[in-house]
Design a protein around this nucleic acid. Structure first.
Lengths: 244, 244
DNA sequence: ATTTATACTTTGTATGAACATTTAAACATT
DNA sequence: AATGTTTAAATGTTCATACAAAGTATAAAT
């Protein structure tokens, strides 16, 4: 904070710059134990900007529950912001390994395709750029449980010739120096159509747990877009959530 | 919107009043298909308040991803789906009609019952002890969205005569000095049977997102056992997970 | 007909100011 | 010692204003 200066020439808005600074501040050990943050007026004066701009930046972090404001008192880092997050976020392979279940690939198919609009916008890539598409049918000995479709951002550097039978996120981290940090998920229930029923070895109209997932890097840039279709009779999504 | 007026005498801040109004606006069918919202300047002028105050209200809804703003274009309702965000983990009531309105109970039924084996073991209580059972059908104006069944641990001290139309976790915290800390959840997909179909106003065989939830206190002792049956067509479970 | 320039609309950014509300701490009173 | 009272500090609310940036629509030019 001491060394931080506002750059009025930067293309980045001031409140974004301040937000970044605050995120760094939050990481400092001295604020982790509930010590008060520097107050708004002070920050504003220090950086030579308006208090409103400081508030605009702080608001975002408050929304994210990283900071807690209290009228008449001040602002401090949220106590258990680490445990707020889901404890063990791991790849599906890992998930299952821990439970002592051996998971296997039934089919793996890799291709390079033109992504649809949604993915194109998510990845912020231009027309005519192909992405790696990975389809996997996975399950236990007795039969398939989930059908995955993944699309990877070109920046990952993944190619068609990759060995996709290994755990993916570890590979990305080790070989491509990409750290995955956040997974945004949407879960819903759908009915199996003919194609899915055939793949998952169930009947048309059977329930399927559908999970759409966006895996991002620490800068919140999307790395992978993933669709998962789970046999509802043999898969339950379990979560531990801590409040506060 | 037309009939809405700002109350400058109200103890509620203006931006909260506006936020409530916007939440109602969002529910209106005319905005459900992506039609543009009235623009900020217009709303401000119409309500006789500052544009900044309108923005303050909209910010929250934008953050909750109920509204999408686009520079140079306008603001519109995000999608057709109601989403609940797990990183802001609160009671369902709190989640939905915190400051706004629009979420309502269709039916509330309280009873004292002998729990089944699973609940008995979870609560670690002896045979012959009854627990409070709470059934709720909740949703929006246009129809029910979720059917809840909750069982409460006897130690909560909850009785049949409680007012269950208020937010539950706050009540527990304030009146019974019980803090809820962790929620363990299992999510799956099932098909609507005749009973559920009737309750949720859908057809038999339609997909349902089924959530089983155990809410615990900080000592990890179970407080509530909760089953939730969500209409899959109008509810998606969204999660942001940080890897750590 | 297509491109280009322009004006307009809408959200985004930023400032400065004023007052309200809440809290904690210091102080005074009983 | 317990209880009020004042005061200072911090966030909360709200306003008015100005300009920037992005997208849309229209008019002009080619």
């Amino acid at each position: 904070m001491e060394s931080f200066v506002i750059n009025h020439k930067s293309p980045l808005p001031l409140h974004i710059q301040v937000e970044a600074m605050l995120r760094n501040l939050i990481e400092l050990p001295e604020y982790q134990n509930g010590k008060m943050f520097p107050n708004e007026v002070h920050i504003a004066k220090k950086l030579g900007i308006s208090r409103n701009t400081v508030r605009q930046a702080t608001n975002k972090l408050v929304y994210e529950r990283l900071l807690v404001r209290k009228k008449g008192v001040g602002t401090r880092v949220a106590k258990n912001n680490i445990t707020t997050r889901l404890n063990k976020w791991t790849s599906f392979t890992h998930e299952m390994d821990e439970k002592g279940v051996s998971f296997k690939n039934y089919t793996v198919k890799v291709s390079r395709v033109f992504p649809d609009k949604e993915i194109q916008q998510l990845f912020k890539i231009a027309d005519g750029i192909k992405v790696i598409k990975l389809e996997r049918l996975r399950g236990l000995e007795k039969g398939p449980i989930v059908y995955f479709i993944s699309y990877f951002h070109p920046a990952t550097g993944l190619t068609e010739k990759e060995d996709y039978s290994q755990p993916l996120y570890e590979k990305l981290e080790k070989e491509h120096h990409i750290t995955v940090a956040v997974s945004k998920e949407g879960i819903s229930a759908i009915l199996a159509n003919k194609k899915l029923a055939a793949k998952l070895n169930i009947s048309e109209g059977d329930p399927i747990l559908f999970r759409k997932r966006v895996v991002c890097d620490p800068g919140d840039r999307p790395i992978e877009y993933n669709l998962g279709y789970y046999r509802a009779d043999s898969f339950t999504y379990t979560i531990d959530i801590a409040k506060d």
